[in-house]
Design a binder for these strands. Structure first.
Length: 646
RNA sequence: GCCGAUGUAGCUCAGUUGGUCAGAGCAGCUGAUUUGUAAUCAGCCGGUCGGCGGUUCGAAUCCGUCCAUCGGCUCCA
């Protein structure tokens, strides 16, 4: 007998050789059917793998991340089996799980191709094979055996992978007529895969190397229940409807022009108004938090970026220097605001008593992103960072971090991003060589971030090796209304630039010290933030932010004058309104303005004119009654105050 | 940048094998109607069919090339 410790620290005895399914069965039969994987002493195992020693375990179902991983990875094998059936001689690259589903990179035999039209038959065959309930059988292989198998199969991709593995660590998995090199784990058998959908096809280089052969990547997703697939497909539909590129066009927020250039957004009046309100919102918070506004030019001498080190790293692959009539004089479009802010810091000497100094600027920067990478407002070549740089003493780091976190949390709360998590990016613990700055400072900064996050009680994951070479950072990821994750704000510690720009302050010891710099952008960039906000709200912005808050709809032309009067009064109350005086029936005007997502439709006809009132209709809710104008203005003001309340 | 797909009016899209195929709806304009809570009717305007070049008697349609967009890859200070 062996001792099995459950997550709740319960310990029970099982016969040696027990597996996850057996353990689950001892709890409930229905649970046993749902188990896809198990954690055994910190390692993820197959649910059917025998446990021969005392162990601490955790059972996983599809709902768990680890359970999904096994499920989708197994589905990738099932897809590979099916592809071998339809395309004999196909060579297989890698087939991992991704955030939503899985893919397999394949090299089709000469002259063969695969397209969306082939998906239905592949899906059908996959389900047919799934229904055979073929077990996933794990076998350990010697390197020689493994090489022999794939040499006979003539799959150079697997051979390459195996050649890099250490002998004694190689395992194969077999299900039905298919055998693959695989670390695992896998689900017990194919039978629990009940729904399958192939999603798309794309080219991908073998091992991500553009000099190597391009393989065909087939993406798919699978579920243990048909209903889950339907829900997922609905979510994709919903995501399509919320696409900020589509809504941005419909609502006339922004556009692009081939003539201006790709990746260079043009903000239309309504978008510009929206953005301005977001900026003012943040400016007000920043004023309250002791930030000082600065303004810097869009270009700087090339030497500035040589000093910062960015020219060496990005110069060749970015916008090229601007030349002037003066021989040898070169300027760069600024790819970031930091060097300019460092120069502002240097414009006068600083005492330790002055710190922290916080310079804030909505600074527009230019980066030559690869053309294929541009995407709506989320990836552009010119964007405006809600940037600020905090210059502080090392002992102030944690305090400043806490304050920045406060700002970010206030923004999330006000804009209704209820779900978010943070990622703390630290040094690679095994290799400190690629990082600049003293060990002591890094330790201080890393613990400052960790403690700040802990103090605020934030949901966070720590990623080792993800820090920038110049310092650790904290990133904020929000989940939008339909569950998609977006990276927004970032707070980064920087030891590099203060060094390179030789920034100093005079300490209480009358000696010169180097300040620490914090880069922070709670929105990330205005472009990206507005894009995420559009997708989060589906264009139904909070009342305080939306470009047009109310539209006045006269029943007929006779009431246009009254409508204009109402609009003027509302505008005096700072409520953004306009009159829809088109010669259309009221039903048509309601429909059009509902579709335009205007939050309030104010209908005026004979009754309203006589009683000096308006009939209020809330977008998506219908008629909510008649009010006089002052009453309505107070009503709106209250709603806005509620939204902005801390 | 690479692979693949796409590009027809302001928007959404038709356009079979190259030959009255330059179309529809919405938007806009004009007129009629004067309307009470999700589409009133009629007329009109609007396109070098992404750009350039080629094949052909003839090209939105076939070929080449460039540009842009989309989906991926790679990248993201």
């Amino acid at each position: 007998m062996i001792k099995i410790t459950f997550p709740d620290n319960n310990v029970r005895e099982f016969p040696k050789g027990v597996n996850a399914i057996d353990i689950a069965k001892s709890l409930s039969n229905s649970l046993a059917k749902e188990i896809t994987a198990i954690e055994v002493n910190g390692e993820i195992w197959d649910a059917t793998r025998a446990i021969n020693e005392d162990a601490t375990i955790k059972l996983f179902k599809f709902q768990d991340e680890e359970g999904k991983d096994a499920f989708w990875h197994s589905s990738a094998h099932l897809m590979a089996e099916t592809l071998e059936f339809f395309y004999p001689g196909v060579k297989l690259g890698i087939g991992p799980t991704i955030e939503n589903g899985f893919y397999y990179d394949i090299d089709l035999p000469e002259g063969k191709s695969i397209s969306d039209n082939d998906f239905p038959k592949i899906e059908k065959k996959m389900l047919e094979l799934a229904r055979q309930k073929n077990q996933f059988i794990r076998t350990e292989q010697t390197k020689a055996e493994a090489l022999k198998y794939f040499t006979e199969k003539n799959d150079e991709y697997k051979l390459e992978l195996i050649s890099e593995l250490e002998d004694g660590t190689i395992t194969f998995y077999e299900q039905g007529n298919f055998t693959d090199l695989c670390r695992g784990p896998h689900i017990p058998n194919t039978g629990i895969i009940k729904a399958v959908k192939l999603l798309k096809i794309a080219g991908a280089y073998w091992r991500g190397d553009e000099k190597r052969k391009q393989l065909t990547r087939v993406y798919g997703i699978s579920f243990p229940k048909q209903k889950m697939l339907e829900e997922y497909l609905n979510m994709l539909e919903e995501a399509k409807k919320r696409d900020h590129r589509k809504i941005g066009k419909e609502m006339e927020l922004f556009t692009f022009s081939k003539s201006v250039g790709q990746g260079l957004p043009l903000w239309l009046p309504k978008g510009a108004m929206l953005r301005e309100r977001l900026e003012n919102f943040l400016k007000k918070i920043q004023r309250e938090h002791g930030y000082e506004p600065v303004i810097t030019p869009h270009i700087g001498q090339k030497e500035l970026y040589v000093t910062s080190g960015h020219y060496a790293k990005y110069g060749e692959d970015s916008f090229q220097p601007i030349k002037t009539p003066n021989e040898g004089e070169e300027f760069l479009l600024k790819p970031m605001n930091c060097p300019h802010h460092c120069e502002i810091y240097k414009s006068k000497p600083h005492s330790y008593k002055d710190l922290p100094i916080r310079y804030a600027e909505f600074g527009t920067v230019y980066r030559y992103e690869q053309s294929g990478e541009l995407h709506g407002l989320t990836r552009v070549r010119s964007f405006t960072q809600d940037d600020a740089h905090i210059f502080c003493r090392p002992d102030q780091l944690k305090e400043e971090f806490l304050k920045v976190i406060d700002i970010v949390l206030y923004i999330f709360k006000t804009l209704d991003f209820a779900n978010f998590e943070t990622q703390i990016s630290l040094r690679d613990p095994d290799d400190h060589s690629k990082y600049i700055g003293s060990d002591e400072n890094w330790k201080k900064a890393e613990s400052a971030i960790i403690n700040a996050v802990k103090e605020k009680g934030l949901n966070s994951v720590i990623e080792y090796g993800e820090a920038a070479f110049y310092g650790p950072k904290l990133d904020f990821m929000v989940k939008d209304a339909i569950g998609r994750k977006w990276q927004l704000g970032t707070i980064q510690v920087d030891y590099n630039l203060p060094e390179r720009f030789e920034l100093e302050y005079v300490g209480s010891d009358d000696k010169k010290h180097r300040p620490v710099m914090i880069h922070r952008a709670p929105f990330g960039s205005m472009e990206r933030f507005v894009a995420v906000l559009i997708e989060h709200t589906a264009g139904k912005f909070p009342l305080w932010l939306t470009p047009e808050q109310a539209v006045i709809l006269p029943i007929s032309e006779k009431y246009n004058d009254y409508a204009k009067k109402v609009s003027n009064i509302l505008n005096n109350y700072d409520i953004r309104s306009f009159v829809d005086d088109r010669n259309e029936k009221i039903g048509k005007k309601i429909r059009d303005n509902e579709l335009k997502k205007i939050p309030y439709l104010l209908i005026v006809g004979e009754k309203e004119v006589d009683s000096e009132t308006i009939a209020v209709r809330k977008q998506g809710h219908g008629d909510i009654g008649t009010m006089d104008i002052k009453e309505y203005a107070d009503f709106i003001r209250l709603e806005i105050e509620k939204q902005l309340a801390n």
